[in-house]
Design a protein around this nucleic acid. Structure first.
Length: 262
DNA sequence: ATGGCTGGTAGAACCAGA
């Protein structure tokens, strides 16, 4: 059985509902994990998903910011929400598919501007969030795919300039070390880098501020698809849809899709 | 030349993203 799972930081699912529909019609993943939905659960735009056959939807939204949603053609059971900052922010939803696979959808905090927790508490909160995820991940016994906007670009070839970004939140050594500890905690396999190994450039986000994102290409790989070792061995295809950065009024992130033969 | 932009919300000389 072939199963495809996509992840996309959409930066408001209501504002960009037309390009979400385009993506679902063209790529037709079985499961779509969205981050930054920016909508309360009672205002979620269900109709389009329902029309396209995505009858199973798990929401963890909040007012104004953040918010995640997992949307599926297949039933989703055992929904759970973790709040790794313990501050009420909506940054995770997980569920199990009928074949037993867990799908965890995560939106790691951005971490503010200054990479110093003593002057920027958001940076410390980001590191604490990843550390608490690591404790959770150490105890996972299930076969799992974990996807989302991790807001950390770990490798030199995950950013347009390693040297220029060493002091920029998302690529600092302390964040990269925290993400590596998380990866090791469950022997997670970084599927993006399994399919597109270093030193090849691989980005999933380009700033809105560039005059021409494609020409300047100052991207970062902030979004990730990781899998437990057994699930990773079932992965047959991995795609980053860079072209979606130009769709309509685009998100600053682009979708990724993995296909598993289970 | 990492902010030059963006959406949500209020009605901002804002907040947050990254």
């Amino acid at each position: 059985m072939s199963l495809s799972i996509a992840t996309w930081n959409i930066n408001s699912v209501r504002f960009r509902l037309d390009i979400v529909e385009r993506f679902l019609r063209e790529a037709a993943p079985d499961v779509l994990c969205l981050q930054e939905t920016k909508v309360m659960d009672d205002a979620f735009p269900h109709a389009m998903f329902e029309e396209l056959g995505y009858h199973y939807r798990l929401l963890n939204g909040q007012r104004m910011h953040h918010g995640v949603a997992t949307i599926s053609k297949l039933p989703l059971v055992e929904a759970r929400k973790h709040d790794w900052q313990d501050n009420g922010e909506a940054r995770h939803i997980g569920a199990r598919l009928p074949n037993g696979l867990l799908v965890e959808n995560v939106y790691v905090p951005a971490g503010g501007d200054v990479p110093d927790a003593t002057v920027n508490p958001k940076f410390g909160q980001k590191l604490a969030f990843v550390e608490r995820m690591t404790r959770w991940s150490e105890g996972l016994r299930d076969d799992t795919v974990i996807v989302g906007d991790f807001n950390i670009a770990p490798l030199e070839c995950d950013v347009w300039s390693h040297k220029a970004l060493l002091d920029v939140v998302s690529h600092t050594p302390v964040e990269v070390a925290a993400l590596d500890a998380l990866r090791q905690s469950h022997d997670w396999v970084d599927l993006g880098r399994n399919f597109i190994p270093p030193p090849e450039r691989l980005y999933t986000w380009w700033s809105y501020r560039a005059a021409d994102w494609r020409t300047s290409d100052r991207g970062r790989r902030l979004d990730h698809i990781w899998a437990s070792p057994a699930a990773a061995r079932a992965a047959t295809r991995f795609q980053v849809l860079e072209d979606a950065r130009d769709w309509g009024k685009p998100s600053d992130h682009v979708p990724q899709i993995v296909t598993l033969d289970l």
